[in-house]
Design a protein around this nucleic acid. Structure first.
Lengths: 244, 244
DNA sequence: TTTGCAATGTGTAAAAAGTACACAAACAAA
DNA sequence: TTTGTTTGTGTACTTTTTACACATTGCAAA
C-alpha cells in the first residue's frame, strides 16, 4: 500500500552542537562486491529516504528524522531542492543504487531539510549503530552530491542563525552564556568579546536568567539561562536597515 | 524524445518594479465547459511548466522564463519547493488539469523560482497576450496553491533584499536615487528619510554616480547612478552582529 | 587548611552609526 | 515671468558598537 515515489527523496542535514564543535549526523555506507569481495562503496551519506505516495514532503522529512534519531518535534526546515541530472551518476553511487531492494528513477530530485538538535539528546550509537556525529570542520568523504547539500545547509544555517533565534535549538534547555557564545562563534567562525556579548544578550528579554548555577565544575559556577520563544514572539522588533 | 516528468514542475514568481508598484507576472487561465459553455475556470496562475526528462531544475526554470518573457540572463533563484499532496485538488484545478494535452501525476512537486526583472524590458502584451503584470498589492484570484507560492516568494524577496544588493535587478541600468529609494520602500513597506537614505547610499561605493542627468522632466533633473557588482564583490564587508 | 587553577561576571570611555529635521536650486509648463 | 514639482544638501542629538582588565567563585591538589 505504501509505495515509494521513484524520483523523489528527502535528505536531512542534522546539525548538533557539542561543547566545541558543530557536528552533523552521517550514515556509514559500505558495499562489498558479491563476487570479488572487493569494497565497492565505503563512505558516508546524509540521512534521507524516498517519499511515499500520498505523503507530504515535511512528513517524509520528519519520518526520516524519527527513524534515525528517535526524536519528534525537533527543528526542521526545508532549505533547498537538488535536482541536477548528474547527481547520482558517479560509479560508486550507481553500484550502491543497484544494491537497493527497491527501484528508483534515473533522475531523482531530493528536497533538502535542515534539522537542529541538542546533540546530548541523540546518542546514535545505541539504537542506530550505523549513524555517527561527525564534526563539520573535519568531514569524511560523502556519497552522491551530499557534500554539496551539506555546504548549502551550512550556508543557510549561518545566514539564518543571525536573523532568528534558532541557535538555541542546538543548546540544552538550560545553558550558560559561555555555551551560547561558543555556539555562535562555532557556527559563524568568529569570536565575540565576552563583555560585549553579554551586554548584547542582556538586552534580549527572551534570554532569561534562572536561579540556578552549574554544579561540580572546578571553577566559579556559571548561571543558567533559558530561551523563551513566547517572550521572543511578543518582544521582537524588526530593525529595517539596508544591507545590515 | 523530450518527455515531461509527470510529477515535477517549476513555477516562476517574476517580480518587476514599475515606478510605484511591485508587480508580478501572471498568466490568465480560462476554461469553458464544452457541453454547457459554462466558465469552469477563470483566474490567474504563476508562470510554470513541467520539467523535461534529462533536464536540470535551473534549466527548466530558465526555459519557462524565456518562453514567457523572451529574456535570458535574468536574476533567478530557487527559493522553495511545494509538495503537499493537496496542492492540486481544488475542483477548478482538476478541471483545468483534465483539459491539458499531456498527462500529469496526481501528486506534483513544484520547485519555486524567484525572478527579478527590470519591468520596462518586459512588455508582455506584444508577444504573450495572456501574460500580465499585476500589482502585488492588489492581486486577482490565483489557481492551484499559487497564492501560497507567491507569499513565500515575497517573504524571501523581503528578507534577501536587505542582505544582498539584488534590488538593483528591478531597476533600469541607470537609475536615480529616488527610484532606488522608492523600490526599497515599496518592497519593504516602509519609508526612509530622504537625507538619511542618501547618506547611507553615499557610503556604498558600488552605487556610482554618473555624469548624466534626467532629461525632459518638469522639475530639477536628478543625477543618474549605476550599480557595480564588481565593486560590490571587492568591497563587501560582512557585519556580523547577532539578530541584526 | 591552604594554595593554585580555571572560568565567571562586571563598567567605562571613545568611535561609529542612526535619527530627526528645512530650504534653496533647477527645470518645464503655463 | 510665474508656478509647480522634485532635487540635493548639513547639523545636532541619540543610540549602538567597540576596545579593554581584574576581582570573585568553587573545586582540586598539595
Amino acid at each position: 500500500m505504501n509505495k515509494l515515489i521513484p524520483n523523489l527523496s528527502v535528505d536531512c542535514v542534522v546539525f548538533g552542537f557539542d561543547k566545541q564543535n558543530l557536528n552533523v549526523l552521517l550514515k556509514k555506507r559500505q558495499l562489498k562486491s558479491a563476487e570479488t569481495g572487493e569494497m565497492l562503496v565505503d563512505d558516508y551519506t546524509l540521512t534521507g529516504y524516498h517519499v511515499f505516495e500520498g505523503e507530504d514532503l515535511d512528513t517524509a522529512a520528519q519520518r526520516t528524522l524519527y527513524n534515525v534519531t528517535g526524536l519528534k518535534d525537533i527543528y526542521l526546515e526545508q532549505f533547498f531542492t537538488f535536482g541536477n541530472t548528474d547527481r547520482l551518476t558517479a560509479e560508486t553511487d550507481k553500484n550502491w543504487i543497484n544494491s537497493l531492494d527497491f527501484e528508483i528513477a534515473e533522475h531523482v530530485i531530493s528536497v533538502g531539510y535542515l534539522a537542529l538538535v541538542d546533540s546530548t539528546k541523540v546518542k546514535p550509537d545505541s539504537e542506530h549503530p550505523e549513524v555517527f556525529w561527525m564534526p563539520v570542520s573535519n568531514l569524511p568523504a560523502l556519497g552522491f552530491d551530499h557534500k554539496n547539500i551539506l555546504d548549502k545547509a551550512l550556508e543557510r544555517l549561518r545566514m539564518k542563525v543571525r536573523l532568528e533565534p534558532i541557535g538555541f535549538e542546538l543548546l540544552p534547555d538550560k545553558f550558560t552564556l559561555r555555551e551560547m557564545q561558543e555556539m555562535y562563534e562555532c557556527i559563524l567562525g568568529i569570536t565575540f568579546d565576552k563583555r560585549n556579548f553579554r551586554k548584547k544578550v542582556s538586552q534580549m528579554k527572551y534570554v532569561i536568567q534562572l536561579d540556578e548555577k552549574q554544579h561540580g565544575v572546578a571553577h566559579k559556577p556559571a548561571q543558567k539561562f533559558i530561551f523563551s520563544r513566547d517572550v521572543y514572539d511578543r518582544t521582537r522588533t524588526e530593525k529595517l536597515n539596508l544591507f545590515i
